[in-house]
Amino acid sequence: MQYSPLGRSGLSVSRVCLGSMTWGIQNTQKDADEQIIYALERGVNFIDTAEMYPVPPNSETYGDTERVIGDFFSRHPDKREGVIIASKIAGAGLPYIRSGAFISKDTIAKAIDASLARLKTDCIDLYQLHWPNRTSPHFGKHWPNQVKSSKLDVAQERERMKGIVQALGQAIEQGKIKHWGLSDDTPWGIHTYLVLCDELGVPRPVSIQNEFSLLHLKDWPFLIESCVLEEVAYLPWSPLAGGMLSGKYIDGARPKGSRFTLVQRQGLFRDTPTAQTAIKEYCALAKGYDMTPSQLALAWCDQIDGVTSTIIGATTMDQLTENMDAFDLVLSEECINDIAALIKKYPVVF
Rank of each mutant, 00 (worst) to 15 (best):
G288S: 14
P273G: 09
S332L: 03
C227R: 06
I336H: 08
I97C: 03
Y289G: 02
E51L: 02
Q295C: 06
Y346A: 10
T135R: 15
G10K: 12
V348S: 12
M161Y: 03
Q319Y: 08
R254K: 12
D31V: 05
V232I: 15
I164K: 07
R67P: 00
G288F: 04
S246C: 08
L94H: 09
Q35M: 15
C227A: 08
R160N: 15
C227P: 09
Q166F: 08
R75Q: 12
R8D: 12
D185C: 12
T186F: 05
V83C: 02
P255Q: 08
M161N: 11
I177N: 05
Y62L: 09
G267F: 12
A155P: 03
G43C: 10
A286D: 09
F102M: 13
K280P: 00
Y127C: 01
A50Q: 03
A284Y: 00
K120Q: 15
T28G: 14
E199S: 13
G243S: 05
Y38D: 05
K105A: 12
I250C: 05
R270P: 01
H138S: 10
K88P: 06
R270A: 14
I224R: 09
P293G: 07
D251F: 02
L129G: 04
F269Q: 07
L116F: 00
E199C: 06
S14L: 04
P95N: 13
S294D: 11
Y346C: 10
D290R: 09
P5S: 07
Q2P: 02
I85G: 03
M317Y: 08
K345P: 08
Q156Y: 14
K176W: 08
L298H: 09
I84Q: 06
A241R: 02
A278W: 00
N210I: 06
I339E: 02
A233F: 12
P293F: 05
T308E: 06
V44L: 10
G140P: 07
I172K: 11
D64P: 00
S183Q: 06
V202M: 07
K110Q: 15
G242S: 13
R118V: 01
D48P: 05
C335Q: 01
I250Y: 00
H142I: 15
G247K: 01
K110Y: 14
D64G: 01
G70E: 14
S99Y: 03
A39M: 10
G24W: 01
K88H: 10
F260I: 04
A92E: 02
S136C: 13
E230W: 05
E159P: 01
L285K: 11
Y346E: 06
D251I: 01
A297H: 00
L196D: 02
Q266N: 15
G140D: 06
L268E: 13
I36H: 13
L196K: 07
A275R: 02
I224T: 08
C123K: 14
